[in-house]
Design a protein around this nucleic acid. Structure first.
Length: 633
RNA sequence: GGUCCCGUAGCUCAGCUGGAUAGAGCAACUGCCUUCUAAGCAGUAGGUCUUUGGUUCGAAUCCAAACGGGAUCACCA
């Protein structure tokens, strides 16, 4: 409609104003809520052109609109704003169109290029936590949104299944696991523990042992005992200790940390873990068996968590398969002059021209670093999926710099698709008590949180729900839908790039801007339509619309554009806020108007159609957010 | 210190491709269930949009600086 008015106005401009106008003069915006109108044209840009007061210019356009645009009922000009009111028939036809199209707002599936969306990407040494939840819900939702606007989507994750941190839990399990009466070490089967939890337990055990040993070494150093320490380390420690003299508290603490780091490196347990990594890289059968076994436990645990979360993946990448990738590309890039080599053999890229630093891409011993691997993996993915057009990496904002560099390197290597790669960077999740720190035990476990939220939903639903016609089994399902729906919505309604506060109490709230609030409205409309035995039928276009009703149709008509905006900005929050606004409008309507008991048949039918439209768009929105839409609650 | 992100009501957040009197929710207070689900609705109260300059007919929105919070600057991943 905007486009229609814009084009007509531009075509008429030479006659109407005596001069042609450009597109950017015609600026539309949403009409203020306290003013009559469905669409507002900003008059100011015309003022200069026409050399008259805003009021005059507005009146002129107003008359033209009223006479030449069929859908316009009337207009008013206030303070340089031209508010256009459309005819009721225009809105009723809009409602009819929405009603006839169950795909309203969505694009044709697979009509746009393939995008790979990466999210989750956990380490296999500990269970998933709250931070992962934000990551996963975000990535999963963005994948759905991209699909809805027509992209083909490949959902993927990289499983960080190798490295020193994995060896730590393996080693600790070998060293510290008690034996049962059959002489077996602890397993998920003989302890009943979830696999990822069991492995995580030993990762913690490793850290405790490491801290303990490091502490002993530190106290030896403090008392001047360097018997078990090499001369180089001793020198370094002494140097640091001297450097502390005369520094402020903060600087001293920083130096202490460095000394502690040295002590940790001296521990026998860390040495053992490093040796284990070497043996893993040499494919030592014993270590490999241990590795496969323990990772297997973790995968079983993760699968259970993902199932509870309701997320899936189309393709998995394992770091153990990909960690050697990228070296060839780096060497090739070296030939092409993209990279350069230092005397010690290490390979670097100079990004100072782009305002960044120099960055290492290959160690002097020829082994790969994180960046090397990511270069290789990205290129590999485009080989795996020849029709791939771009990628979305859902990774925390502490890696902003890394991805900036990665995309630049890929560009410089000549991969044009690098321009279609996007780092979906999201802020950290804070707790009211501050930052989550695994060492201080303030990490919120994903499984625990989901269970808690479902439990709370159960209690609250039993208090106020309408459960009489729901079977016991369906009730359990409903509690999970409400609990998880609330949690997902809570994490997704905030702009991804912003750091957010996780308040455990608010996350399971049912009132206000919450998941259950949206679900409730969906359930309420569902039972309403069921009771009315609602069926689609042509609407009478003769009805007069109340303000509440036209507001809703207007909002429904914006769904497609909102979806595009959410896709473009990779922001489920945009969609969440849209859905919330829609629900608020509907609830106002619902409370102020009779529907089922409305005696006028065509009015009743129109209001039911309106309700059905809201339910349809709401259900779609919730689905795109990964939130389930219950029929009753 | 360099670079990047953030700063809006007591709290959590919208609004940010410049436009009218800056919006929600929570918390507080007042009403509304003998009528379709009150997990709802209507209302009251709460703001120098961190500060200072600049651009503009017009700035929460754009630019610059300052202040405050965070991240990041490894031959770690």
């Amino acid at each position: 409609m905007e486009q229609h008015i814009r084009e007509s106005l531009m075509a008429a401009a030479p006659n109407l104003f005596g001069v042609p106008i450009t597109e950017n003069i015609i600026q539309f915006q949403q009409t203020r809520r306290d003013v009559e109108g469905d669409l507002t044209l900003v008059v100011f840009p015309f003022v200069k052109l026409l050399r008259c007061a805003p009021q005059q210019a507005g009146e002129k356009i107003k008359h033209w609109l009223e006479q030449n645009i069929q859908e316009v009922s009337h207009c008013n000009v206030i303070n340089g704003f031209l508010n256009i009111v459309f005819k009721d028939t225009y809105w009723l036809e809009m409602l009819q169109t929405i009603q006839n199209n169950p795909q309203h707002g969505l694009s044709v599936p697979n009509s746009k290029p393939t995008i790979m969306v990466e999210y989750a990407s956990p380490n296999t040494n500990k269970p998933l936590h709250l931070g992962h939840l934000r990551n996963i819900f975000l990535g999963a939702s963005v994948a759905e949104i991209l699909k809805a606007v027509g992209h083909k989507v490949v959902r993927t994750q990289v499983i960080n299944d190798r490295g020193i941190h994995i060896c730590k839990s393996m080693l600790a399990w070998e060293k510290f696991s008690p034996l049962n009466e059959k002489g077996e070490r602890e397993t998920p089967a003989n302890t009943g523990l979830k696999g990822d939890k069991l492995v995580g337990k030993y990762y913690v055990a490793f850290d405790q042992a490491l801290q303990k040993e490091a502490k002993e070494i530190l106290s030896q150093w403090q008392s001047g005992n360097f018997a078990d320490t090499s001369v180089e380390i001793q020198d370094a420690v002494l140097k640091f200790q001297q450097a502390k003299e005369g520094k402020d508290e903060k600087a001293q603490a920083a130096i202490d940390d460095k000394i502690k780091e040295l002590a940790k490196n001296q521990t026998s347990i860390l040495q053992e873990a490093k040796e284990m990594l070497v043996r893993w890289e040499a494919r030592d059968p014993q270590v490999y068996l241990l590795w496969t076994t323990m990772n297997g436990w973790v995968y079983e645990g993760f699968d259970a968590t993902y199932a509870q979360m309701g997320v899936t993946f189309d393709k998995l990448y394992y770091e153990s398969d990909t960690f050697l990738l990228g070296k060839d590309q780096v060497l090739e890039g070296l030939k092409k002059g993209v990279f350069y080599q230092k005397e010690d053999g290490s390979v670097w890229i100079d990004l100072s021209g782009e305002g960044l630093d120099e960055k290492l891409v290959l160690r002097s011993d020829g082994t790969a670093v994180y960046m090397t691997q990511d270069i290789g993996t990205a290129i590999d993915r485009f080989k795996d999926f020849p029709d791939l057009h771009g990628m979305v990496y859902t990774v925390g904002n502490e890696q902003d710099y890394h991805f900036k560099v990665l995309f630049l390197i890929l560009q410089k290597l000549g991969y044009t698709w690098a321009n279609n790669c996007f780092h979906l960077s999201y802020g950290m999740v804070d707790l009211p008590s501050g930052k989550m720190k695994s060492r201080e035990g303030t990490v919120v476990d994903a499984d625990d949180l989901m269970a808690e939220v479902i439990d709370k939903a159960k209690i609250m639903t039993q208090e106020r729900g309408h459960l009489d016609r729901i079977s016991a089994q369906e009730r359990e399902q409903l509690y999970a839908q409400i609990g998880l729906g609330g949690l997902k919505y809570y994490l997704l309604k905030v702009d991804p790039k912003k750091r957010m506060l996780f308040n455990p109490e608010e996350s399971i709230d049912l009132t206000g801007n919450t998941g259950p609030f949206l679900q409730y409205t969906h359930a309420r409309i569902s039972t309403l339509l069921e009771k009315a035995a609602f069926d689609l039928m042509p609407l009478s276009t003769a009805a007069t619309l109340k303000q509440e009703e036209r507001e809703i149709i207007k909002q429904l008509s914006l769904f497609g554009a909102t979806l595009q905006e959410a896709a473009q900005g990779y922001s489920p929050a945009v969609l969440a806020n849209y859905a919330y606004d829609l629900v608020k409008l509907y609830n106002t309507f619902y409370q102020s108007v009779k529907i089922l008991v409305e005696p006028d048949k065509s009015l009743r039918q129109m209001r039911l159609a309106l309700s059905a439209g809201v339910r349809q768009v709401l259900a779609t929105s919730l689905h795109l957010l990964g939130v389930e839409a219950p029929q009753r609650m």
